[in-house]
Design a protein around this nucleic acid. Sequence first.
DNA 1: GTCTATATGATGATAGAC
DNA 2: GTCTATCATCATATAGAC
Lengths: 192, 192
Amino acid sequence: MAEQTRREELLQIAAELFATKGFKNTTVRDIADAAGILSGSLYHHFDSKESMVDEILSSFQEELFGAYAGILAGTDDPRAKLEAAVRVSFEAIDHHRDEVAIFQNEADYLGTFDRFAYLADRNQQSRDVWLTLLREGVSSGALRKDLDVELVYRFIRDTVWVAVRWYQPGGKLSHHDVADQYLTILLDGITT
Amino acid sequence: MAEQTRREELLQIAAELFATKGFKNTTVRDIADAAGILSGSLYHHFDSKESMVDEILSSFQEELFGAYAGILAGTDDPRAKLEAAVRVSFEAIDHHRDEVAIFQNEADYLGTFDRFAYLADRNQQSRDVWLTLLREGVSSGALRKDLDVELVYRFIRDTVWVAVRWYQPGGKLSHHDVADQYLTILLDGITT
DNA sequence: GTCTATATGATGATAGAC
DNA sequence: GTCTATCATCATATAGAC
Protein backbone atom coordinates (compact mmCIF):
# COMPACT_ATOMS: atom_id res chain seq x y z
CA MET A 1 0.00 0.00 0.00
CA ALA A 2 2.74 2.45 0.91
CA GLU A 3 4.56 1.15 -2.16
CA GLN A 4 6.34 4.05 -3.69
CA THR A 5 8.29 4.07 -6.87
CA ARG A 6 11.67 5.78 -6.89
CA ARG A 7 10.12 8.36 -9.12
CA GLU A 8 7.40 9.19 -6.57
CA GLU A 9 9.96 9.25 -3.81
CA LEU A 10 12.03 11.81 -5.70
CA LEU A 11 8.97 13.90 -6.47
CA GLN A 12 8.12 13.98 -2.81
CA ILE A 13 11.61 15.14 -1.89
CA ALA A 14 11.46 17.82 -4.56
CA ALA A 15 8.00 18.92 -3.42
CA GLU A 16 9.20 19.51 0.10
CA LEU A 17 12.06 21.68 -1.11
CA PHE A 18 9.91 23.60 -3.59
CA ALA A 19 7.37 24.23 -0.84
CA THR A 20 9.94 25.41 1.68
CA LYS A 21 12.43 27.36 -0.38
CA GLY A 22 10.44 28.10 -3.49
CA PHE A 23 10.85 26.64 -6.97
CA LYS A 24 13.49 29.04 -8.20
CA ASN A 25 15.46 28.92 -4.97
CA THR A 26 15.68 25.16 -5.14
CA THR A 27 18.46 23.87 -7.37
CA VAL A 28 18.55 20.44 -8.96
CA ARG A 29 21.62 19.88 -6.79
CA ASP A 30 19.53 20.58 -3.68
CA ILE A 31 17.06 17.93 -4.75
CA ALA A 32 19.76 15.41 -5.61
CA ASP A 33 21.56 16.05 -2.31
CA ALA A 34 18.38 15.49 -0.34
CA ALA A 35 17.85 12.26 -2.24
CA GLY A 36 21.43 11.14 -1.69
CA ILE A 37 22.35 11.02 -5.37
CA LEU A 38 24.14 13.32 -7.79
CA SER A 39 22.36 15.95 -9.82
CA GLY A 40 22.96 14.28 -13.15
CA SER A 41 21.19 11.15 -11.94
CA LEU A 42 17.93 13.03 -11.60
CA TYR A 43 17.75 13.29 -15.36
CA HIS A 44 17.35 9.55 -15.64
CA HIS A 45 13.92 10.06 -14.02
CA PHE A 46 12.84 13.47 -15.26
CA ASP A 47 13.31 15.66 -18.33
CA SER A 48 13.84 18.82 -16.38
CA LYS A 49 13.24 20.60 -13.11
CA GLU A 50 10.19 22.16 -14.68
CA SER A 51 8.62 18.82 -15.45
CA MET A 52 8.99 17.92 -11.79
CA VAL A 53 6.80 20.79 -10.55
CA ASP A 54 4.49 20.16 -13.43
CA GLU A 55 3.89 16.59 -12.36
CA ILE A 56 3.52 17.60 -8.70
CA LEU A 57 0.97 20.30 -9.41
CA SER A 58 -1.11 18.60 -12.05
CA SER A 59 -1.65 15.37 -10.16
CA PHE A 60 -2.65 17.25 -7.03
CA GLN A 61 -5.10 19.44 -8.93
CA GLU A 62 -6.72 16.43 -10.48
CA GLU A 63 -7.40 14.86 -7.12
CA LEU A 64 -8.71 18.06 -5.56
CA PHE A 65 -11.14 18.86 -8.33
CA GLY A 66 -12.43 15.33 -8.26
CA ALA A 67 -13.42 15.93 -4.65
CA TYR A 68 -15.16 19.22 -5.47
CA ALA A 69 -17.08 17.59 -8.31
CA GLY A 70 -18.35 14.95 -5.90
CA ILE A 71 -19.70 17.59 -3.54
CA LEU A 72 -21.40 19.58 -6.29
CA ALA A 73 -23.05 16.43 -7.64
CA GLY A 74 -24.32 15.41 -4.20
CA THR A 75 -27.77 15.90 -2.72
CA ASP A 76 -26.87 17.83 0.44
CA ASP A 77 -28.51 21.16 1.10
CA PRO A 78 -26.56 24.30 0.10
CA ARG A 79 -25.17 25.02 3.54
CA ALA A 80 -23.93 21.45 3.98
CA LYS A 81 -22.30 21.54 0.55
CA LEU A 82 -20.49 24.76 1.42
CA GLU A 83 -19.29 23.25 4.67
CA ALA A 84 -18.16 20.13 2.85
CA ALA A 85 -16.14 22.15 0.35
CA VAL A 86 -14.39 23.95 3.20
CA ARG A 87 -13.66 20.68 4.96
CA VAL A 88 -12.29 19.04 1.83
CA SER A 89 -9.95 21.98 1.38
CA PHE A 90 -8.53 21.83 4.89
CA GLU A 91 -8.18 18.10 4.45
CA ALA A 92 -6.12 18.73 1.32
CA ILE A 93 -3.85 21.01 3.34
CA ASP A 94 -3.40 18.18 5.82
CA HIS A 95 -2.79 15.46 3.25
CA HIS A 96 -0.94 17.45 0.61
CA ARG A 97 0.86 20.17 2.47
CA ASP A 98 3.72 20.66 0.03
CA GLU A 99 1.55 20.57 -3.05
CA VAL A 100 -0.81 23.19 -1.66
CA ALA A 101 2.10 25.39 -0.61
CA ILE A 102 3.73 25.17 -4.03
CA PHE A 103 0.46 25.96 -5.70
CA GLN A 104 -0.10 28.94 -3.42
CA ASN A 105 3.37 30.36 -3.89
CA GLU A 106 4.17 29.63 -7.49
CA ALA A 107 0.94 29.29 -9.46
CA ASP A 108 0.61 32.97 -10.30
CA TYR A 109 4.06 33.21 -11.82
CA LEU A 110 4.22 29.76 -13.40
CA GLY A 111 0.79 30.35 -14.90
CA THR A 112 2.33 32.97 -17.18
CA PHE A 113 4.08 30.22 -19.17
CA ASP A 114 2.34 28.12 -21.81
CA ARG A 115 3.26 24.89 -20.17
CA PHE A 116 1.38 25.85 -17.03
CA ALA A 117 -1.66 27.39 -18.67
CA TYR A 118 -3.80 24.69 -17.07
CA LEU A 119 -3.22 26.38 -13.73
CA ALA A 120 -5.26 29.37 -14.89
CA ASP A 121 -8.00 27.02 -16.11
CA ARG A 122 -8.15 25.32 -12.74
CA ASN A 123 -8.34 28.69 -11.08
CA GLN A 124 -11.39 29.54 -13.15
CA GLN A 125 -12.90 26.15 -12.40
CA SER A 126 -12.39 26.71 -8.68
CA ARG A 127 -14.14 30.07 -8.91
CA ASP A 128 -17.10 28.37 -10.62
CA VAL A 129 -17.36 25.80 -7.84
CA TRP A 130 -17.40 28.31 -5.02
CA LEU A 131 -19.66 30.82 -6.73
CA THR A 132 -22.16 28.06 -7.45
CA LEU A 133 -22.16 27.01 -3.82
CA LEU A 134 -22.51 30.57 -2.56
CA ARG A 135 -25.30 31.48 -4.97
CA GLU A 136 -27.23 28.36 -4.04
CA GLY A 137 -26.73 29.34 -0.43
CA VAL A 138 -28.12 32.82 -0.99
CA SER A 139 -31.09 31.78 -3.08
CA SER A 140 -32.02 29.01 -0.65
CA GLY A 141 -32.10 31.60 2.12
CA ALA A 142 -29.26 30.03 4.09
CA LEU A 143 -26.90 32.94 3.42
CA ARG A 144 -27.46 36.68 3.72
CA LYS A 145 -28.86 38.30 0.61
CA ASP A 146 -26.68 41.40 0.93
CA LEU A 147 -23.43 39.48 0.44
CA ASP A 148 -21.07 40.36 -2.38
CA VAL A 149 -20.60 36.71 -3.39
CA GLU A 150 -17.56 37.48 -5.51
CA LEU A 151 -15.85 39.02 -2.50
CA VAL A 152 -16.96 36.25 -0.16
CA TYR A 153 -15.58 33.75 -2.65
CA ARG A 154 -12.17 35.38 -2.56
CA PHE A 155 -12.34 35.66 1.19
CA ILE A 156 -13.02 31.94 1.57
CA ARG A 157 -10.54 30.82 -1.05
CA ASP A 158 -7.75 32.90 0.39
CA THR A 159 -8.34 32.11 4.02
CA VAL A 160 -8.64 28.44 3.43
CA TRP A 161 -5.52 28.00 1.33
CA VAL A 162 -3.32 30.44 3.16
CA ALA A 163 -3.73 28.26 6.25
CA VAL A 164 -1.05 26.06 4.71
CA ARG A 165 1.44 28.62 5.97
CA TRP A 166 0.81 27.86 9.60
CA TYR A 167 -1.07 24.58 9.78
CA GLN A 168 1.00 21.79 11.35
CA PRO A 169 -0.07 18.27 10.40
CA GLY A 170 0.01 16.22 13.58
CA GLY A 171 -0.07 19.37 15.72
CA LYS A 172 -2.45 20.47 18.45
CA LEU A 173 -5.27 21.23 16.04
CA SER A 174 -6.39 18.59 13.56
CA HIS A 175 -7.66 19.67 10.17
CA HIS A 176 -11.14 18.89 11.46
CA ASP A 177 -10.65 21.31 14.36
CA VAL A 178 -9.41 24.05 12.10
CA ALA A 179 -12.30 23.55 9.71
CA ASP A 180 -14.78 23.69 12.61
CA GLN A 181 -13.35 26.89 14.02
CA TYR A 182 -13.10 28.46 10.62
CA LEU A 183 -16.69 27.61 9.71
CA THR A 184 -17.87 29.07 13.00
CA ILE A 185 -16.17 32.38 12.22
CA LEU A 186 -17.28 32.40 8.62
CA LEU A 187 -20.87 31.47 9.27
CA ASP A 188 -21.57 33.37 12.48
CA GLY A 189 -18.86 36.02 12.86
CA ILE A 190 -16.70 36.79 15.86
CA THR A 191 -18.95 39.23 17.75
CA THR A 192 -21.30 38.35 20.57
CA MET B 1 6.02 67.09 -3.24
CA ALA B 2 6.12 64.25 -5.71
CA GLU B 3 9.87 64.85 -5.88
CA GLN B 4 11.54 61.54 -6.30
CA THR B 5 15.21 60.90 -6.28
CA ARG B 6 16.63 58.61 -8.95
CA ARG B 7 17.29 56.14 -6.19
CA GLU B 8 13.61 56.05 -5.16
CA GLU B 9 12.56 55.80 -8.76
CA LEU B 10 14.76 52.77 -9.28
CA LEU B 11 13.50 51.17 -6.08
CA GLN B 12 9.93 51.59 -7.26
CA ILE B 13 10.74 49.94 -10.58
CA ALA B 14 12.45 47.07 -8.79
CA ALA B 15 9.54 46.72 -6.36
CA GLU B 16 7.07 46.28 -9.16
CA LEU B 17 9.15 43.54 -10.73
CA PHE B 18 9.83 41.78 -7.44
CA ALA B 19 6.10 41.88 -6.66
CA THR B 20 5.05 40.51 -10.03
CA LYS B 21 7.73 37.98 -10.89
CA GLY B 22 9.24 37.27 -7.51
CA PHE B 23 12.63 38.30 -6.16
CA LYS B 24 14.61 35.39 -7.53
CA ASN B 25 12.85 35.47 -10.88
CA THR B 26 13.77 39.10 -11.35
CA THR B 27 17.29 39.68 -12.65
CA VAL B 28 19.26 42.88 -12.24
CA ARG B 29 19.07 43.08 -16.02
CA ASP B 30 15.28 43.08 -15.81
CA ILE B 31 15.43 45.99 -13.42
CA ALA B 32 17.96 47.89 -15.50
CA ASP B 33 15.97 47.28 -18.69
CA ALA B 34 12.80 48.57 -17.09
CA ALA B 35 14.72 51.64 -15.97
CA GLY B 36 16.26 52.17 -19.39
CA ILE B 37 19.86 51.75 -18.25
CA LEU B 38 22.41 48.93 -18.24
CA SER B 39 22.73 46.46 -15.41
CA GLY B 40 26.16 47.66 -14.32
CA SER B 41 24.81 51.15 -13.79
CA LEU B 42 22.51 49.94 -11.04
CA TYR B 43 25.54 49.33 -8.87
CA HIS B 44 26.22 53.03 -8.78
CA HIS B 45 23.06 53.31 -6.67
CA PHE B 46 22.94 50.04 -4.76
CA ASP B 47 25.37 47.50 -3.33
CA SER B 48 23.44 44.49 -4.51
CA LYS B 49 20.06 43.20 -5.55
CA GLU B 50 19.59 42.04 -1.99
CA SER B 51 20.05 45.51 -0.58
CA MET B 52 17.30 46.69 -2.90
CA VAL B 53 14.65 44.39 -1.41
CA ASP B 54 16.02 45.12 1.98
CA GLU B 55 15.44 48.83 1.58
CA ILE B 56 12.00 48.26 0.06
CA LEU B 57 10.84 45.97 2.85
CA SER B 58 12.33 47.74 5.84
CA SER B 59 11.01 51.19 5.00
CA PHE B 60 7.53 49.81 4.40
CA GLN B 61 7.53 47.91 7.67
CA GLU B 62 8.57 50.98 9.57
CA GLU B 63 5.65 52.97 8.24
CA LEU B 64 3.12 50.21 8.86
CA PHE B 65 4.10 49.57 12.43
CA GLY B 66 4.01 53.25 13.16
CA ALA B 67 0.35 53.18 12.17
CA TYR B 68 -0.40 50.16 14.38
CA ALA B 69 1.34 51.82 17.34
CA GLY B 70 -0.88 54.85 16.91
CA ILE B 71 -4.01 52.71 17.09
CA LEU B 72 -2.88 50.80 20.15
CA ALA B 73 -2.02 54.03 21.94
CA GLY B 74 -5.41 55.59 21.16
CA THR B 75 -8.48 55.82 23.36
CA ASP B 76 -11.03 54.08 21.14
CA ASP B 77 -12.99 51.15 22.51
CA PRO B 78 -11.70 47.64 21.67
CA ARG B 79 -14.01 47.03 18.77
CA ALA B 80 -13.17 50.37 17.16
CA LYS B 81 -9.46 49.67 17.55
CA LEU B 82 -9.83 46.29 15.88
CA GLU B 83 -11.73 47.87 13.02
CA ALA B 84 -9.10 50.59 12.71
CA ALA B 85 -6.31 48.02 12.48
CA VAL B 86 -8.16 46.21 9.70
CA ARG B 87 -8.74 49.48 7.86
CA VAL B 88 -5.11 50.55 8.16
CA SER B 89 -4.05 47.22 6.68
CA PHE B 90 -6.30 47.47 3.65
CA GLU B 91 -5.10 51.03 3.21
CA ALA B 92 -1.53 49.77 3.15
CA ILE B 93 -2.50 47.34 0.40
CA ASP B 94 -3.91 50.28 -1.54
CA HIS B 95 -0.96 52.61 -1.00
CA HIS B 96 1.87 50.08 -1.02
CA ARG B 97 0.74 47.27 -3.24
CA ASP B 98 4.15 46.08 -4.36
CA GLU B 99 5.70 46.23 -0.91
CA VAL B 100 2.89 44.21 0.63
CA ALA B 101 3.07 41.66 -2.19
CA ILE B 102 6.82 41.26 -1.80
CA PHE B 103 6.46 40.88 1.92
CA GLN B 104 3.73 38.28 1.49
CA ASN B 105 5.61 36.25 -1.07
CA GLU B 106 9.20 36.48 0.06
CA ALA B 107 9.32 37.18 3.79
CA ASP B 108 9.21 33.55 4.88
CA TYR B 109 12.19 32.56 2.78
CA LEU B 110 14.20 35.76 3.12
CA GLY B 111 13.66 35.63 6.88
CA THR B 112 15.90 32.57 7.02
CA PHE B 113 18.94 34.77 6.30
CA ASP B 114 20.68 36.88 8.95
CA ARG B 115 20.31 40.04 6.99
CA PHE B 116 16.53 39.73 7.05
CA ALA B 117 16.14 38.58 10.62
CA TYR B 118 14.20 41.76 11.33
CA LEU B 119 11.36 40.32 9.26
CA ALA B 120 10.81 37.63 11.89
CA ASP B 121 10.89 40.29 14.62
CA ARG B 122 8.25 42.31 12.82
CA ASN B 123 6.17 39.19 12.45
CA GLN B 124 6.25 38.68 16.21
CA GLN B 125 5.44 42.33 16.76
CA SER B 126 2.45 42.06 14.45
CA ARG B 127 1.21 39.04 16.39
CA ASP B 128 1.45 41.04 19.61
CA VAL B 129 -0.59 43.87 18.14
CA TRP B 130 -3.44 41.67 16.93
CA LEU B 131 -3.54 39.44 19.99
CA THR B 132 -3.71 42.50 22.23
CA LEU B 133 -6.61 43.88 20.23
CA LEU B 134 -8.46 40.55 20.21
CA ARG B 135 -7.97 39.91 23.92
CA GLU B 136 -9.19 43.40 24.78
CA GLY B 137 -12.17 42.69 22.57
CA VAL B 138 -12.97 39.46 24.38
CA SER B 139 -12.53 40.80 27.90
CA SER B 140 -14.59 43.90 27.15
CA GLY B 141 -17.42 41.63 26.03
CA ALA B 142 -17.39 42.86 22.43
CA LEU B 143 -16.13 39.55 21.06
CA ARG B 144 -17.29 36.00 21.74
CA LYS B 145 -15.62 34.36 24.71
CA ASP B 146 -15.33 30.96 23.00
CA LEU B 147 -12.95 32.24 20.31
CA ASP B 148 -9.51 30.73 19.88
CA VAL B 149 -7.83 34.13 19.64
CA GLU B 150 -4.62 32.66 18.25
CA LEU B 151 -6.55 31.11 15.40
CA VAL B 152 -8.65 34.21 14.82
CA TYR B 153 -5.45 36.24 14.68
CA ARG B 154 -4.07 34.04 11.93
CA PHE B 155 -7.31 34.18 10.00
CA ILE B 156 -7.41 37.96 10.15
CA ARG B 157 -3.75 38.43 9.32
CA ASP B 158 -3.90 36.06 6.38
CA THR B 159 -7.16 37.24 4.91
CA VAL B 160 -6.24 40.87 5.13
CA TRP B 161 -2.81 40.59 3.53
CA VAL B 162 -3.68 37.99 0.95
CA ALA B 163 -6.15 40.48 -0.52
CA VAL B 164 -3.13 42.05 -2.19
CA ARG B 165 -3.39 39.23 -4.72
CA TRP B 166 -6.67 40.41 -6.15
CA TYR B 167 -7.21 43.98 -4.97
CA GLN B 168 -7.04 46.51 -7.79
CA PRO B 169 -6.17 50.07 -6.74
CA GLY B 170 -8.47 52.35 -8.65
CA GLY B 171 -10.87 49.48 -9.39
CA LYS B 172 -14.57 49.08 -8.67
CA LEU B 173 -14.06 48.58 -4.95
CA SER B 174 -12.06 51.12 -2.98
CA HIS B 175 -9.99 49.96 -0.04
CA HIS B 176 -12.69 51.45 2.17
CA ASP B 177 -15.34 49.27 0.49
CA VAL B 178 -13.24 46.15 0.86
CA ALA B 179 -12.57 46.89 4.52
CA ASP B 180 -16.29 47.45 5.15
CA GLN B 181 -17.33 44.20 3.51
CA TYR B 182 -14.59 42.29 5.18
CA LEU B 183 -15.45 43.62 8.63
CA THR B 184 -19.09 42.72 8.07
CA ILE B 185 -18.16 39.11 7.35
CA LEU B 186 -15.63 38.91 10.14
CA LEU B 187 -17.82 40.51 12.79
CA ASP B 188 -21.22 39.08 11.90
CA GLY B 189 -20.67 36.05 9.66
CA ILE B 190 -22.30 35.22 6.36
CA THR B 191 -25.42 33.40 7.53
CA THR B 192 -28.84 34.95 7.98
C1' DG C 1 25.03 58.82 -13.64
C1' DT C 2 25.72 55.70 -17.32
C1' DC C 3 28.50 52.79 -20.43
C1' DT C 4 32.06 49.23 -21.93
C1' DA C 5 34.02 45.18 -20.86
C1' DT C 6 34.66 41.40 -18.13
C1' DA C 7 35.49 38.37 -13.91
C1' DT C 8 33.43 34.86 -11.22
C1' DG C 9 30.45 31.62 -9.84
C1' DA C 10 26.17 29.01 -9.93
C1' DT C 11 22.79 26.41 -12.48
C1' DG C 12 20.29 23.40 -15.70
C1' DA C 13 21.35 19.91 -18.50
C1' DT C 14 23.99 16.11 -21.41
C1' DA C 15 26.92 11.85 -22.76
C1' DG C 16 28.76 7.83 -21.80
C1' DA C 17 30.98 4.55 -18.28
C1' DC C 18 29.80 1.41 -14.52
C1' DG D 1 19.75 3.58 -11.46
C1' DT D 2 23.78 6.15 -10.34
C1' DC D 3 28.34 8.22 -11.22
C1' DT D 4 32.07 10.84 -13.68
C1' DA D 5 32.97 14.58 -16.20
C1' DT D 6 31.75 18.45 -18.44
C1' DC D 7 29.22 22.15 -21.23
C1' DA D 8 26.64 26.16 -22.18
C1' DT D 9 24.23 29.63 -20.24
C1' DC D 10 22.92 32.89 -17.30
C1' DA D 11 23.32 35.88 -13.14
C1' DT D 12 25.53 38.86 -9.86
C1' DA D 13 28.93 41.92 -9.43
C1' DT D 14 33.32 44.85 -10.45
C1' DA D 15 36.70 48.40 -12.60
C1' DG D 16 37.57 52.09 -15.04
C1' DA D 17 36.42 55.17 -19.15
C1' DC D 18 33.22 58.82 -20.63
